[in-house]
Design a protein around this nucleic acid. Structure first.
Lengths: 234, 234
DNA sequence: ACAAAAGTGTTGAGAGTACACCCATGC
DNA sequence: GCATGGGTGTACTCTCAACACTTTTGT
């Protein structure tokens, strides 16, 4: 942009890098934080696993591209998504210059069409803590996504986005524990979550095979989802 | 990326969007938070002010491009910089599709070559709170940059990056007040900053024209600059 | 009745916040 | 000696963190 003359656009056109949008799809699968990966069919890195993504189409915004990729891979729409970071090292794709704008999405696993076990498919869920070898710089991207997700959990209510519409407090606590990687105190957790006012008690209870049935809660969409943290400097 | 066949790269090449890198340069000028803008020479938006930036060159990373732009505009190197966000709405540049990766930098005004008052130049400092009409979506980008900077001040020590090497606690407090847009308590501020251990007392004092001379402090480079904030959920 | 998970309060420690006066220097 | 900005302490409140037992249900 800036003060470049229009001719610059034309002169450089043949040297533009390619732009792709990658989407990191997180979900909780069997008490573990998982990410959806696709197996590459072609070189380079043929046969290796990679973050789903694709070329940005002329005419669609970055968000639209990310939403499209997400829908193609999972069939879900309308879930939490945010831009993560843009990676553009010249060497990240051995063939040519590729800039990738990475997004991450949080989905409830039971809203997803493709499930673990769909064996014929070229996509699969992996634990974020036990990743296969990944194509390109995708391991680094996933590491950064996990860091961001963990940070975000601390001052916002994004953790709720990993759960289905109705959930119990134990399930919510479990989600937080899995993502953060450490245990939380049940009483403190409940007190704080309820005090924040982002949850609504439904009258219903979860039928469980054993033990006392738990109250089902609902995320109040209109509630503030970001909280003023205490500050380093007063 | 993902599982697209190599032919895709070739097929789409003529449709790649252009990629630019914009750099938002913040500095404190006369007790106000300022941003460096350049006047556009060419259409579209000729004569309007814009965030400095330029095309990403094949072979340089995004960070390198941002550092290069920063150096071109200010002559400074080695200052605080981070990636802000990537803006890619199809309509943001009326001529063609342009994706811009925005970075922001915090500089100490007296490290900058170009100063307010260099009248012949096409660049100028503006208060972030009193911006002229801006080209493209640059107003939105600056609003987002300010939001991010404010958030970052709350849980990290980035505010120090706006000051020269040696500074007084009053100057530091002033920087925080200007950026955050509200007053802080002097005693609480000092106690907390000193307790955090990121500052080192130099023996020296600032000679002032009047009043008691203030102790000069120094940012301890090796100190942790990010702090564990209190958490929403325990 | 027992196994299994849900649910519930209190206390001590540390951090945040509000607030007003004395100190060192230049003129 | 006075104007100017620098520097300091205390008391109250609130949030955090640690901790164990009772309740409800299905079998």
């Amino acid at each position: 942009m800036a003060s470049n003359p229009p001719s610059e656009y034309t002169r450089n056109r043949h040297r533009y890098p390619a732009v792709t949008v990658d989407i990191i799809i997180f979900a909780l699968v069997e008490d573990d934080l998982n990410v959806l990966l696709v197996r590459r069919r072609y070189a380079p890195f043929a046969g290796m696993w990679a973050i789903p993504g694709g070329f940005l189409e002329i005419g669609e915004s970055l968000e639209e591209a990310a939403i499209r990729e997400l829908e193609e891979e999972t069939g879900v729409t309308g879930v939490y998504m945010e831009q993560l970071y843009t990676f553009g090292d010249p060497e990240r794709d051995p063939r040519m210059r590729v800039i990738t704008v990475a997004y991450f999405a949080l989905v409830s696993i039971d809203a997803v069409q493709h499930r673990p076990g769909d064996d014929a498919s070229e996509t699969r869920w992996f634990s974020i803590f036990q990743l296969p070898q990944l194509a390109f710089d995708h391991r680094r991207i996933l590491e950064y996504a996990l860091t961001r997700l963990r940070n975000k959990l601390e001052y916002s209510a994004v953790g709720l986005q990993l759960l289905p519409d109705y959930f119990t407090l134990t399930e919510l606590q479990n989600a937080y524990e899995v993502v953060l990687g450490h245990q939380l105190d049940k009483r403190n957790f409940r007190r704080k979550v309820l005090a924040s006012g982002i949850l609504e008690e439904t009258g219903r209870r979860k039928k469980s095979t054993e033990g006392r049935p738990a109250m089902l809660y609902l995320y109040r969409r209109n509630a503030v989802t970001e909280f003023k943290k205490r500050r380093l400097f007063p």
